[in-house]
Design a protein around this nucleic acid. Structure first.
Lengths: 188, 188, 188, 188
DNA sequence: AATGAATGAGTATTCATTCAT
DNA sequence: GATGAATGAATACTCATTCAT
């Protein structure tokens, strides 16, 4: 059901997608749809939740390579590839999550912060290991950056995909990032 | 009318805002509203258009300082300040523009590309002037970057404003950017 | 609109009557119906209210003939005739008022109590004038009686109209009532 | 099941009670509920029927004391007590029976007429025994009266229970009735 | 016999849009 | 020009009923 809903939301947006369409796409009747959800908003919530679920699951292996630059790079590449594969999901989530009820929205934003924290930790490990040198205050910002940089690949496909392949994009982004980090980006 | 509509869209989103509300907020009747527009979508279009109008107007002075790093920095700071002041507008535009009819959307995306091009030109001028050294292919990407980096200040206020002031954010971003650019970001 | 709604409610009951039917019967579109009401329950409320409105208006002249038995009789006859003419309305009101939201229901029950009070006052006047002799506690009960006795003509048409004309019914009821009242109904 | 249904109908009304709720309250699944009934209306029918069943059962002993005034009084008191105990049931039945399909409604109204007839017979016996003196045409009316008077205790609890105890109410009603009957209520 | 998942017709309500005044 | 009453298509959600297990 969630896959179908994502497809519809992507195509027509959350508001223009009817519950009947969601049900039909999922292959059952509205009646049955409403066995699973209580509100149309629930669908949106489930969609957002499942996206983070998958993201977290697919990034779960990342944090291991403690403190090495290769580890960082690998993590980032994995993240970029993930986004490339889940473009639609990301776009939907970022454009529609505002329609979530307040508490659901908070829950979702929290998940996003967890994702940022994931990279923040990796960076901090690298810092500890002496592999990078960034002002302490800049680490969280760098993590935010990194996360957004990746999402940019999804949001701005209309502007980017015509000029770059994912690999070009990743390489370029990484160079930027690592260059700033390895040296002493953000220091005296 | 547009100001009122932005306020409403920001608060309730485009779909949840009724034409009646837009009219009332603007201070005239629906009948009169429909003298100015043909469709609710028109309001959204007008909103998006007016935002870019203002952005372009306020960034118009930028391109002059040809090729100097200070010019670049000044342009960027001006852009960031602009975004800070127009946060709501930016958020609305990026979250709702997907609801525009196809051609209007294209028009709007084009405006966005023009904005990117603006910075691209500045960067290219700097490159020509020998102030920065970036791979040619990376310049457009850097411009994209730069534009998004700024928008991030609007989109992610929930995550950023609690940790950074605008000035901190700007300084940090600039250091990242200039560090990568001045050196030889993206080269061997 | 109200007349139409009464007709429909009478025929199919409140729950089985759709808002569309109400609108159509009233001669306008649902959209327009919802200019006048906010909720289907509002229709029911309006129906109930208008019934009491009419009842009170039509009984307003009654209270004048202070204390005479003829006054009492006249009042009662007027009330019975009123009920005869508004049978449908009464039946609808008593069968459907339970579907009113709590506060509306209270409001309606209050109106009913006002009607009872109307007769209570007449009876009290007669008592004062020495025309009837009833235990004080019984007066309110007698008023309740009297009001219900009349409504019975509406509720139980299926049982009564085949055996009695309104006049027979009125005469009989009056004799019962007056007999009990004139003598010393409810005393030693 | 019926008890449960009555409780639900009393609380929320027939239309607002779902078959699922009825099943759950009865302690089995909807599937099983539909083994016993064919239609939701059937539940209402069963409810109404069972009420009359109980009423008739509990009043069955009444008709014996032929022709005595005490017998009449006893019968009436028994009836009033019955109603007091079955208030909810009566209220439900009278407010919801209109939702029965035509033939079921007729059946139920017939049961009601049987109840009236029960008292009619008692009255007639008293008449024959010379204990009361009422115009022949008035006997059926008096029976209707008597039946309604009792139901009034259930329908109008909101207006009566705050002012009277059941005993006060019964006494008062009886005095009215007997006074009218014993003398020559309704004669020349 | 019993279950409860599946169905889909049915309904209240909203809201963009029109047009007579 | 301006108004706002009127429209009715569109939509989320409910619930009686069925039937495969």
């Amino acid at each position: 059901m969630i896959r179908g809903a994502v497809a519809l939301f992507k195509q027509k947006g959350y508001h223009r997608t009817t519950t009947r369409e969601i049900a039909k796409e999922a292959g059952f009747s509205i009646g049955t749809l409403y066995e699973y959800i209580r509100t149309k908003e629930d669908v949106l919530y489930l969609v957002c939740d499942s996206i983070y679920e998958e993201v977290q699951q697919r990034l779960s292996g990342i944090a291991q390579q403690e403190g090495s630059l290769e580890g960082l790079e690998k993590a980032i590449r994995q993240y970029y590839e993930l986004i490339d594969e889940m473009q639609d999901e990301f776009v939907v989530m970022y454009q529609e999550s505002k329609s979530l009820p307040k508490d659901a929205l908070e829950y979702v934003l929290n998940k996003e912060l967890e994702m940022v924290a994931l990279f923040e930790n990796i960076l901090r490990d690298c810092q500890k290991a002496g592999e990078i040198h960034v002002k302490d205050e800049s680490i969280s910002l760098a993590a935010h950056h990194l996360v957004i940089q990746g999402q940019m690949w999804a949001f701005r496909r209309w502007g980017l995909h015509s000029h770059y392949t994912l690999d070009q994009f990743m390489d370029d982004q990484l160079q930027w990032l690592l260059h700033g980090i390895k040296g002493n980006g953000g220091t005296t």
